[in-house]
């Protein structure tokens, strides 16, 4: 059995469950209360849980993310919603220099059980200050976990283990996914440790995450119609990366395309490729290729934005060129 719901509804349900089950959990961020959440994830929460636990903040990303770190140290379990990854740069000092460093720097005395959620990614013509995919930057940082739920099941299921985690967890929600609908099986499960195969294949492995997952699946469908069976591996957890699942996909398919909405240089795609070089080089039948965003601030005009991003056609083309 299963039931149909949207990504937005799934995440809303997950937050509702956390707030209802644990008095230490509270939600804070810009417009999470009266406005109902920038993306309506917390609509109705203010009436149900009150202004102490559904806490509207001023436009002070550094201040309120830092305050959430302090609240986590003080015994609470905050969920911080940052409107977009671009705005999270204003809070990067607190995330990198405090949240990520505190446990090790204090000799293991203080952990920071904090969850930060933020929208990421392009595709809505929001231009260069609301559209970037910087999860690769976050995945660079020791001391935090980085998640990218890309399915209904993960939108519903990754928050609870993230809140149960004693260390900071940053969740990237691709804005292009919010309205997708899908079936949530009754026996759903969602760990925050492993990658998952979203489509079985044998000819090529497409390794991706977040907003690029539907594009990779669309490309795989097109390829299947042309006789190429692509496996699609959804990384889900960007730090720590599930190297075993990556190696297994390489061993099975022997050809790999990495799809990442981040910019090519210094990208998460580059890290995945490097790990394949280190651990599975001799399993490969062809050099690994990648489809990333063009190295440009994301432009407004639709045709330019489309051209800047990974698209199913680009993935298909990359696979076909690789297959010869």
């Amino acid at each position: 059995m299963s039931r149909k719901l949207s990504y937005r509804e799934a995440m809303r349900e997950a937050m509702h469950e956390a707030l209802a089950n644990d008095p230490r959990v509270f939600l804070m961020g810009e417009d999470v209360g009266r406005y109902g959440g920038t993306y309506a994830f917390s609509k109705g929460f203010l009436d149900e849980f009150g202004p102490e636990r559904i806490r509207d903040t001023p436009l002070s990303e550094l201040g309120f993310v830092g305050a959430a770190i302090g609240a986590a140290l003080g015994g609470m379990r905050p969920i911080v919603e940052v409107m977009t990854v671009n705005f999270s740069l204003l809070a990067l000092d607190q995330i990198v220099n405090t949240a990520a460093a505190l446990r090790h720097m204090s000799g293991g005395q203080f952990s920071v059980p904090l969850v930060i959620r933020m929208a990421t990614g392009a595709g809505r013509q929001l231009a260069a200050q609301h559209s970037h995919s910087l999860e690769g930057w976050y995945a660079h940082i020791p001391g935090i976990k980085v998640l990218a739920p890309a399915t209904i099941e993960d939108a519903r299921g990754m928050l609870a283990p993230a809140l149960a985690d004693p260390d900071p967890v940053v969740i990237f929600e691709h804005a292009g996914l919010f309205n997708i609908e899908g079936d949530l099986p009754d026996d759903w499960s969602a760990d925050i440790r492993s990658a998952r195969v979203r489509r079985q294949g044998k000819d090529v492995a497409i390794i991706t995450h977040g907003g690029s997952l539907p594009k990779a699946l669309a490309a795989a469908q097109t390829l299947a119609e042309q006789g190429i069976e692509a496996e699609v591996l959804d990384l889900r957890v960007l730090r720590p990366l599930d190297s075993e699942s990556i190696a297994a996909a390489v061993a099975k398919c022997r050809r790999v395309v990495v799809v990442d909405e981040g910019w090519r240089s210094g990208s998460l795609a580059a890290e995945v490729m490097a790990r394949i070089m280190e651990s599975a080089f001799y399993e490969l039948d062809a050099p690994v290729v990648r489809v990333c965003s063009e190295e440009v601030p994301i432009p407004y005009a639709k045709h330019l934005e489309d051209a800047a991003l990974p698209q199913p056609e680009k993935i298909v083309a990359a696979v076909k060129e690789m297959m010869g």
Partner: peptide, 21 residues
């Protein structure tokens, strides 16, 4: 709670500790 060596970095932390209290 530290020992914070980013100038000003301890202030948001203090706000959050007080919020938890």
């Amino acid at each position: 709670y530290g020992g914070n060596a980013i100038v000003g970095g301890g202030l948001p932390l203090a706000v959050g500790l007080a919020l938890a209290s």
